[in-house]
Every structure is written in C-alpha cells, then in structure tokens.
Amino acid sequence: MAVLVVAAGVLGLLVGSFLNVVIHRVPRGESVVRPPSRCPGCGEEIRARHNVPVFGWLVLRGRCANCGSRISVRYPLVELGTGVLFALLALRLDPPDLPAYLYFGAIGIALALIDLDCRRLPDAIVLPSYPVLAVLLTASAWYRDDWWALARAGIGGAALFGFYLLLALVYPRGMGFGDVKLAGLLGGVLGYLSWTALLLGAFGGFLLGAVAGVVVLAAGKGDRKTALPFGPFMIAAALLAVFVADPLGRAYRELAGLA
C-alpha cells in the first residue's frame, strides 16, 4: 500500500505539471503538446532541469532563469496539490478503481481553475471525459465482477445531468450548460461508489457555493448579484464525497441501528 501511495503521489506531481499547461492553453484553443513550455515574460523555452515539478520553481526561487521575471506560485501549488490528491486517492480507494478516480481528480483540478479564471468549463475537457471514464469504470466493474456499481454509475450520471438541465432551463442566469455537462460526469463517478456519495456530491456543491457567497458578502467583496463560478464547488463537493461518503454512511447506519 505504501508503495502505491508514493507512486501515485509522484505521478500526481508529473500530471500536475502537465495540468498547468492544460489550464493555460486549453481556454485559448492552443495545443497542449506544442510548443514546449516557455516563460510568459521573455518567451524563452524552459529548460528540462527547471521543469521538474515543485523543485524547479524552488530552485529558481520563483523567477525565470533567463529574464528574471516572476513565475506565479500557482504553478508549484497545482503540482503539489495534484500529487497530494493522487496520494490520498490511492490511500482511500481500491486499486481497480484508482485509474478512473485519478483521471477524474486531474480533470477536476484543471476544470476548477479554468472556471475560476475564465468562467468556462471547456467541452474539450468535459466531453472526451465521458468515454474515458466509461471505459475506466467498466474495466473496474469487470475486474470486481460488480456490474451493479456500473449500472448505478449510469443511473447517477443520467439523474444528475437531468437535474442540472432542469435547473438550467428554469433559471438560466444561475446555471450554465457547462455545469450541466459536468454534472453528468460527477453523477457517474459518484454513483459508481454509492448512493451516499452521489447524494453528498450532488447537494454538497450547493452548500459550498452558499457558504462562499456568504463569505464574499461578509468580506465586502461583492453583493447579492455577484456571480461566482459554480464548477469549482461542484468538483470540490464531488472530491469530498469520494473521501467522506463511506465513513458517513457507516456512522449513519450505526446511529440508526442498521449496522
């Protein structure tokens, strides 16, 4: 188990480095493969030894080796955050489930930050994730011989997609179709785990969004008409549900005398 957790964490650092490219380029319609990473200040290609996740930024003290311009601290934070998330997922989940949820964690980080930056959830990430996650969850279900989990994922994905679609049609100013398309993905990955995970993830986003709205109002950073991107709250609630749904479900059953 320890080897798997460490390996997942290292993989997360590497994936986080790639996610920085995705977050910067995908909203601009640019290729994530070419050209190689460059300094946004001088345009000089970043040397391989300076492109090591987290450590490269620390060695350079957050500045370009060529022109000395500052490199945002968000780059190493994305790398470190992805590494920590991957390690925690490896600690929480069984190995057959891990590929699907590592993929989901990676796109979740990218989508949340893109939505914060651009108020968009790009189809270029969301739509291809449907077949990718379908294949990965099917492989997990086949390995486990647990086809009900896969059926539950399909039901959860369809239900959450339909619920968000209804909200978008009834209140289009408060819910975008990017959120609707993301909801189908969240419903699938949460439904695969359990009904408890699906319910927590589905409604946890609204709770987190409401709390954030209160904080914004209390801090004087906006008013009741201030629009906050909802995608990050949906993703945060879904990831939280992955970790807490199982222990909360057990606690509820024990309190209800069902254990």
Rank of each mutant, 00 (worst) to 15 (best):
Y171S: 10
D179T: 12
N66I: 06
A112H: 02
G213V: 00
I114C: 11
A87M: 02
V15K: 00
G249D: 03
F177H: 09
R49Y: 14
V52M: 10
D246V: 14
G205A: 15
G68E: 11
A183T: 08
A227V: 12
I71E: 01
A106S: 11
V33L: 15
L60Q: 12
S129C: 01
L198V: 13
F86I: 02
A100L: 00
R25S: 07
V211Y: 13
A139V: 05
A212C: 05
F233M: 03
F243C: 07
A112R: 02
C118E: 14
H50Y: 01
V5L: 13
L255C: 03
D123L: 11
A183D: 04
R224A: 02
A112C: 05
R144M: 12
E79T: 12
L199Y: 06
L60G: 04
A8N: 01
G176C: 03
V78E: 04
P40W: 09
S31I: 14
I155P: 00
G257D: 03
L77D: 05
L217C: 08
R224M: 09
L217K: 04
R92A: 10
G83S: 07
G187C: 06
G184Y: 00
L85V: 06
L19H: 06
D145S: 12
P229N: 08
F86G: 04
A219S: 01
L208T: 06
Y171G: 04
C118I: 12
A219K: 09
V3E: 14
P122R: 08
Y143K: 15
V135I: 10
L116T: 03
V5T: 13
V59A: 13
A210M: 07
G16R: 03
S72Y: 14
A245F: 10
A236K: 01
Y192T: 00
G9S: 12
K181G: 02
V32G: 10
R120I: 11
L13I: 02
G108F: 04
F104T: 04
R34P: 13
P232M: 06
